[in-house]
């Protein structure tokens, strides 16, 4: 088939009803949040002293860390989904959650006696954290990968990894409402590891499923 024939053929399929990347992204975010909320409600649920905990800064900070991660990743995914839309300076947004965590860890180390560091770092829930953040996040990750398949990521592994960070941010936000380990030492270690698992899964899924 020569190119002029190909062009005539494509022209006959001119009209498109495919949704824009922005629209796809909104629906993926809604679906992913509902999915994560459902899995969270079925498997864990919020901690029983949620209302009292909501008045303590350590508990609230967990949502600041996970929320900024979700927002930063959420602004990057649509850009990685469109050809020629380089993330540019927005990539730096991903440095905000680690920076906040670093400040929080330094503050915690300054406030808490060294003898307590280890107990707060390991906590009581680290295995629960490493299990349930990936478990809550894997469905949202699949949703974002499916959304990216309908778009056109020119860097599939990177797009998948950032989708993993987004799924991790959403999952960790829900998980934080359940977990009793509020120390930044715990969050910086175990939440980070759990989110990294999702980011690695996303990168692998991107390499396998996002070529077009």
């Amino acid at each position: 088939m020569d190119t002029s024939h190909l062009i005539k053929t494509l022209a006959k399929d001119a009209r498109t009803s495919d949704k824009s990347v922005g629209t796809l992204m909104v629906w993926a975010c809604v679906a992913a949040s509902l999915f994560a909320a459902t899995v969270f409600a079925l498997l864990l649920g919020p901690r029983h002293d949620f209302a009292a905990a909501a008045e303590t800064p350590r508990f609230l900070f967990k949502f600041v860390a996970t929320g900024t991660l979700a927002i930063a990743a959420c602004t990057l995914v649509p850009r990685l989904a469109r050809p020629g839309a380089a993330p540019g300076w927005r990539a730096a947004l991903l440095a905000i959650p680690p920076a906040l965590l670093a400040i929080a860890v330094a503050t915690e180390l300054a406030l808490v006696p060294a003898a307590e560091w280890q107990a707060r770092w390991v906590g009581t829930n680290w295995l629960v954290c490493l299990t349930f953040i990936p478990l809550i996040g894997i469905g949202p990750l699949a949703i974002f990968i499916a959304m990216l398949r309908r778009a056109a990521p020119t860097r599939p592994s990177l797009a998948g990894a950032v989708a993993g960070l987004l799924a991790g941010g959403i999952a960790a936000t829900f998980y934080a409402a359940h977990c009793f380990d509020d120390s930044p030492l715990f969050v910086a270690t175990w939440y980070t590891l759990a989110v990294a698992i999702l980011a690695a899964a996303g990168a692998a899924a991107g390499r396998l499923a996002l070529r077009w």
Partner: peptide
């Protein structure tokens, strides 16, 4: 490559803002 790119442009034209 021109033809592959044309096909891709066609099938992914909704990713152009």
């Amino acid at each position: 490559v021109v033809q592959e790119a044309l096909l891709a442009i066609h099938l992914k034209r909704h990713t152009w803002r």
